[in-house]
Design a protein around this nucleic acid. Sequence first.
RNA 1: GUCCCUGUCGUCUAGCCGGCCAAAGACGCUCGCUCCUCAGGCGAGAGAUCGUGGGUUCAAAUCCCACCAGGGACGCCA
Length: 437
Amino acid sequence: MILRIDDTDVGRNSDASLTSIFEGLRWLDLGWDEEYKQSDRLALHREVANAIFEKGLAYRDFTRAEATDSEKSGSHGTWLCNPGMRELTRQESDRRAAAGESFALRFKVPHDRAGHVTFTDAVYGDQAKAYADIEDFALLRSDGMPTYHLANCADDADLRITHIIRGQEHLSNAFKHALIFDAAGSVSPTFAHLPLLMAPDGMKLSKRVHGPVVSVTTYRDAGFLPAAFMNFLCLLGWSPKNDREKLTRDETVELFTLEGINRANAVVNFTEEEPFDAKALWLNAEHIRSLPPAELARELLPFVPADLARMTQITPLIQERMKLLKDVQSVADFFFAEQLPPYDSAELIPKKGDAAMAKTVLVRAREVLAMAEFTHDGLDAALRAASVELGIKAGQMFEPVRVAVCGRKIAPPLFGTLEVLGRETCLTRIAQAIEKL
RNA sequence: GUCCCUGUCGUCUAGCCGGCCAAAGACGCUCGCUCCUCAGGCGAGAGAUCGUGGGUUCAAAUCCCACCAGGGACGCCA
C-alpha cells in the first residue's frame, strides 16, 4: 500500500490539511509501505505528457488561462475543446511555443472516432463512453504543472499501482484516465469506484460545506476507537451479507471484497447538536464494551487526569456507560474531582422520603462505612443491613449515599464506586452532604 | 444542456441467475422485563404496497421497456 499525496495544485496545499491527513491515517493504523508526494515527481509527469504530445495525441492550447471560464460547463452545454487550437499545425504550434507564448497541453480526444472508451469497474461493472462525449481535458497547465489526471496516471503507471479505489465522483473521469494510460503505453490498474457518502441535506459530503464531520481526526478527538470507526465506514456501502455488523478489523479484512460493495450512495447522519451518526455511536459503544477493561483503561488515559492503575480500577464501572471515550469525562468525573462540584441538596432526598430521612440515612451510612469491610460484597451487606435496621427500602438507603458520594443521582453501581473511591473520600463526602441538610 | 451512476422501512443494509418475500437484519423510536439510579442485557411493537407506469410469466423486489426522482462529472481543482 502506497500513500501518495496529490499536491499538484500548489495554491491549495497547506501544512494544516497535510497534518490532518497524516494524523487521521496514522490513527487508523493503515500501515502503508511507501510514501510519495506528487510535487516531488514533476519531471516524470512532464516526461509522460511530452511523450503523449510527441505521439500526436495531445496539442498545445494557447488560449489565455483567464479566458477558460467559458470552458466551465453548466447550463450552456458541454465544452469539448477550444476551437482552433487542436487544429494548429505542428510548425505553428512550435513557433508560438518558441516565441515564449504560454500554453496548456490538452489531450486530443478523437471526437470523430466511432465507438467508445471502455473499462471494467470492479464495483460498477462494464463502463463505456463515446469518444465524442469526452472533452479535451488538460494534461499540463500553462505554468507547466501537471493536472490531477496526468499526474495520477503517470504515477500509477510508474509505481505499478494495481488498484485504484476511490469515490464514484471519479467514475466519469476514469474514461479520461483510460485514455491516458493507453496513450502512455501502460495498462490500466483495476478501477473500483465506491458509492459516495452523502450529508443529510442530500449533497455529497464535503469539508467545505459540512465542516469537521468529514475529518477523521474529529472522530479520533471525540473518542472513537479506530476499529469502531473503520467498522462504521466499511458498513457504508458494504456488508458481509450474513446479518453481521459488529466486526473486528481482522474479520473485516477476512470478509471484504470489492464485488460485495453496492452502488448506491449512503447518507451519513449528523446534526448541529449530535455530530455523529447514531449507528457509528452504537458501534463504538459495542467496541468499547468488548474491549478487555485493562485495554480500555489505556485508551481512556488521554481523556482523563488519572494514571493507568487508577483507570484500571474505574473502567469496569463505566465500560457500559460510554458511547465515546470522551464520555468518561462526564460519567466518571467524580472519581477525579478533589472536591465535588456543588449540587442541590434536594437531590439527597430519596424516593418517597424527606430531608429527615436523608439525614438519618447519611448519618447511619457514615457510621456503617467507617466500620464496614470496604469491598463490593462487604459494602453491599453493610448498607442493606442498615436499611433493614432503619426500616426503609434498600433503594432509599442507597440513593442519598450515591448522591453524597457522586454528586448526582445517575452514576455507576454504588458498591463498586464506593470501593474505588475509598473509605476516606466516601466518609468526607457523606459528612459534607450531612452539612447541607 | 451533455454524459455517467443510482432508486427496498427515517437511516445503514439483506434479498435481485423469478416461486420458500403479503420482504429479512441492524441503528434509531415506543413499550415491557431484569434492576441500588443510569447504563447494559432480554423480550415485544410501530415502521417499506420493494421510485412510478406498462409489459413478459401460472408466478416479479427479482427479467424487459418507458418515465420520474436523486446524485455525480463536464476546471489550466482534486
